[in-house]
């Protein structure tokens, strides 16, 4: 129990819970299925993005290119499928998008691990490059008449409920994809050598190499995998919006990184958990969606999120400072 209370997840969970209770006590609309489903629905794509950002941060880097990769992959694959009037299994759409994402992710990996360039700068550059290429050479107007399989997929729902006012609410099937990705990442990090290698790399890159991890291989894996996940997330986004817009996801990266950091992932690398990052995301989404239920106008959102980032990281920084002071004691 004591161990649980020392983790940063615990504190984030408390904050989320407190926020839930406050909003719930102020507004009866909060604890309704409709609203909770809304929250979950708006977390489907960001949920995958959070995993992307977290993996990279744990390894000691920072990636801002995943929204660009997602947009690129979803728009290109939609366009391809659209032009060939595709009518096969929907899985192919996801595979195609994921594959494109994978390739783009590997471009990141080449610059980061072979040329040893700083991750932030590389991904800023590739992000600009990807979206620029997409909008110039592939197209800049949205595709609204999606191929049939995508449309069918987008209409399928699970957990259907009919609420008091007689409206049926449900979650898109895509939520299962997100859930799958999250479980996959959790298993990857905990139960594979690759996952532990990611932590090791973020903890001490030189030592990781000395004991036999290959930083190049790990980095190629991370950025390739992140690209793949981003591609899948992009396709989910397309199905949920029922159109493919090449400027849609751009600009969400900083908020996602903020969510990851709020969840206790250290920006210096080596630390971070799936649970923490999801809690961080939940916090951000709740503020975005439900602040208005507290009677706070929506234009306060940014301010609140900014303040949260500062307070969250400030508390963490303060704790680190204090523990260093404690450890320096010598006289017995």
């Amino acid at each position: 129990m004591k161990k649980v209370m020392q983790t940063s997840e615990f504190y984030v969970a408390i904050v989320v819970l407190a926020l839930f209770l406050v909003i719930g006590s102020q507004s009866s609309a909060f604890f309704t299925i409709t609203n909770l489903f809304d929250l979950i629905r708006s977390g489907i794509v960001p949920g995958i993005f959070v995993m992307c950002a977290m993996l990279v941060i744990i390894s000691g880097g920072i990636d801002v290119s995943f929204p660009a990769i997602a947009t690129f992959s979803m728009f290109c694959s939609t366009k391809i499928l659209h032009s060939m009037h595709y009518d096969g299994p929907v899985l192919v759409a996801f595979l195609l998008s994921g594959l494109i994402g994978l390739c783009l992710g590997l471009i990141n990996a080449v610059f980061i691990s072979l040329f040893r360039l700083p991750t932030l700068i590389v991904t800023l550059g590739t992000s600009s490059m990807f979206s620029g290429f997409l909008l110039t050479f592939v197209g800049s107007s949205q595709i609204s008449d999606l191929p049939k399989p995508l449309l069918t997929f987008s209409k399928e729902q699970i957990f259907k409920f009919t609420n008091d006012s007689g409206i049926t609410v449900g979650l898109p099937v895509a939520v299962l994809v997100s859930l799958g990705v999250i479980v996959l990442v959790a298993l990857l990090l905990r139960y594979t050598m690759m996952g532990r290698g990611i932590y090791a790399l973020g903890g001490d890159a030189v030592s990781a190499q000395r004991i036999g991890f290959s930083p190049i291989r790990i980095q190629f894996f991370i950025y390739g995998f992140v690209g793949l996940m981003a591609g899948v997330a992009g396709m989910i986004h397309t199905t949920m919006m029922r159109n493919s817009n090449p400027v849609d996801l751009l600009g969400t990266e900083l908020l996602i990184i903020a969510a990851v950091v709020l969840g206790g992932t250290r920006i210096t690398g080596g630390h971070g958990t799936v649970l923490g990052s999801l809690l961080g995301l939940l916090l951000v989404i709740t503020i975005q969606n439900s602040l208005i239920l507290l009677g706070i106008p929506s234009y306060w959102q940014r301010f609140v999120i900014g303040a949260l980032i500062l307070i969250g990281t400030g508390v963490a920084a303060y704790q680190v400072k204090r523990s260093i002071m404690k450890r320096k004691s010598i006289v017995s």
């Binding site: 900083l254 940014r302 301010f303």
Partner: peptide, 16 residues
Amino acid sequence: IPPILVTLGTMQLFMG
């Protein structure tokens, strides 16, 4: 707090 996080936060804060 590391500069990247501070300014990530204040970017939101100031715009907010």
